[in-house]
Design a protein around this nucleic acid. Sequence first.
DNA 1: TAGAACATTGACAGCGTTGTCATTTTAACT
DNA 2: AGTTAAAATGACAACGCTGTCAATGTTCTA
Lengths: 343, 343
Amino acid sequence: MKVTINDVAKLAGVSMKTVSRVINKEPSVRKKTYDIVMDAVNTLNYQPNLAARNLAGTSSFTVGLVYDNPNAYYVIDMQNGVLSRCKEEGYELVIHPCNYLDGNMEEDFKTMIKRSRLAGLVLTPPLSEQNSIIEMLDEMGIHYVRVLSGRPTEENQDTCIYVNDYAAAYEITAHLLSLGHKNIGFLCGDKEHKSTTERLEGYQAALKDHSIPLNDELIYEGQYSFESGVEGAKALLGESNPKNITALLGGNDEMAAGALFASRLMGIEIPQQLSITGFEDSPFSRQTWPKLTTAHQANDVISQHAARLLFRKTRGARNQDKDIITTFTPSLVVRESSGPTTA
Amino acid sequence: MKVTINDVAKLAGVSMKTVSRVINKEPSVRKKTYDIVMDAVNTLNYQPNLAARNLAGTSSFTVGLVYDNPNAYYVIDMQNGVLSRCKEEGYELVIHPCNYLDGNMEEDFKTMIKRSRLAGLVLTPPLSEQNSIIEMLDEMGIHYVRVLSGRPTEENQDTCIYVNDYAAAYEITAHLLSLGHKNIGFLCGDKEHKSTTERLEGYQAALKDHSIPLNDELIYEGQYSFESGVEGAKALLGESNPKNITALLGGNDEMAAGALFASRLMGIEIPQQLSITGFEDSPFSRQTWPKLTTAHQANDVISQHAARLLFRKTRGARNQDKDIITTFTPSLVVRESSGPTTA
DNA sequence: TAGAACATTGACAGCGTTGTCATTTTAACT
DNA sequence: AGTTAAAATGACAACGCTGTCAATGTTCTA
């Protein structure tokens, strides 16, 4: 019933250790031996036991995915990306949702790591930006890869995956400018998120490049939530839109959806009277009315590359994956929530 | 650095095996011994190694969560519920998204089970309804708990958690009837989902109990998606609402959101001209305009109980959790998308 | 063609637990 | 107190794999 490495060895007529070498793709196994062993593996349908591997080996076959992000779509995409890579490489994934504000996170981490010695961790924002965590991991000697909001100039190319929110925000803003908008509001997300400042700076850079003076009164500081989007739109548009805003950049899709909601309450027509854009292209940017113009962020692809980067580190010489992309720029998706100024 | 069961044993002055007994909560350990050992465990901050436990023991400490559901909110909730329980019991969770249509699922399952011998599986709909899968698992002797749409009368109370969609649909329909609606449309979800027929039957039962004749023309057969909700609303309301429908029951929140979207396109005011209701109370039922009246389904609680049920089976006598709820009925949440008939 | 250098393979211990079974301690009887 | 049954503990071999290091094959050099 249960087939072990010994069964394979017997069938192939080699030692246990040679089978081990084959399934671990170690070098210095003769091609012929390799084939014989693989045949045996296939006919017996052998699957190496993870627990035994983790116990016996110095490196482990489980990776952790850590997140503190309320966005279900984001999390699922990240999971699926990492998972698909894990499957290919024969790794197991342990997911670790957490709440940074909880405080006892450090303990939590240590427990997780002790219980199942991990090959490494994929950290997603905003946790990936927390220096205290990074230091802790460095101290503990845990491998990790961080997914971060940032621009290609940054260093740490071997341990970070960057999402260029700056460029994406620039592109969205440029899109609105090209439609004739001049007074563009910005609904800022959580200040603790690096993505917030990146997006804000991209927006400002675009304005500057088009010789539009910056105006702090057009910026609402909120959180990445629907409710905050509602509040932000109300705050910026006020009673009768005194600032004469014709376009609103949402910090993310949820805020944009909130702004859409608020506009509706205020009787503002979208996009005739006001353009609204999102960020991330999560499924519900297609489920609002009208559908949101936004910046598409391929989270599953991003997390796949994060996993690949991690494996490159953990597997060392055995894996020299050269095609890893370390910088991603979300790309503009124009839908119905943005249009030319009518003013 | 790394503390093992031996370190604990030494410090406590007992044998390795006794420590093992304590951490496994086996009976026949003297209270005094137990305390001494626990003290040692705590001072050393000992965490049993999962790989070793899985390898040595007959039962394993990993459970799997299997799902084939496109709804991110649902999946996250299920994960978190199971996960929270796993943490308490010292189990590890392996998530297993899959695509039933892929075909090679059986192989996929077997691989997963071989690689990390599992204590058991939590199956969520629609997979949990697939007899072929259940039979396979029975054959393989794998423990599992199914989360299913169904009514309390069903058997298998020790292996299934029921979500009473029938009652919930009944309640929503009754709500609409009480508001004066008579021509109530129904946007049917995927026919393969048990929840679809349960919800449909609940709707029909409510109508019958209020002496409203059933009319198949008011039922649209679609899928549980936003797009399908759009199509369904268009199909039922047609050019000028010839069937004189005043309320629309969405098969789930997404369909309801789609119907909302379509109504907007057709210039129909919600809820003044048309009431629309959802199902599940996923976050975005609060992010539509107007917010959706829906049936709240506590997925995290449901999955927690599923996990508890599973542990009761796998741990046998060691765990006699008596407070497991096996039937959940989603409860009506009235928001702004439903209102009295104006006709 | 001998000998060195290198490539390939194998024997065996050990990873940190739990299961089995033997041993010791305690409790419960006469 | 002496016996017996029951409860509590311990010794030690697994579990299925990988790391180490020694043993064997193979190729190259002179």
